[in-house]
């Protein structure tokens, strides 16, 4: 059963609607969204509310339902330079 979710780019507020399958992994959603927005090089994570979603979990395992809004945020990496 296809689920339609919304992924929000927190950097600019843009959103994209994505069709997903329950067995699709969160890691694939992260990569697809980062590529869609041609994001700056860097690492990104996806959160739903106050929970970071595990890349290895599926849509189903993550408890995501249709019309959920997920947020793509940069995972900070700097500190030393």
């Amino acid at each position: 059963m296809t689920l339609v979710i919304t992924v929000k780019n927190v950097a600019n507020g843009a959103t994209v609607r994505m069709e997903t399958e329950p067995e699709e992994r969160i890691g694939e959603i992260i990569e697809s969204a980062a590529e869609y927005w041609k994001k700056d090089p860097g690492a990104y994570v996806l959160k739903k509310g106050k929970t970071l979603l595990s890349a290895s979990s599926t849509i189903d395992e993550s408890g995501i339902i249709g019309n959920d809004i997920l947020e793509l945020i940069p995972d900070p990496e700097g500190g030393s330079t």
Partner: peptide, 14 residues
Amino acid sequence: QCAMNRTHVKQMER
């Protein structure tokens, strides 16, 4: 590492 994914791997490769 629990919070990492393929974008972290790609970043390491950069």
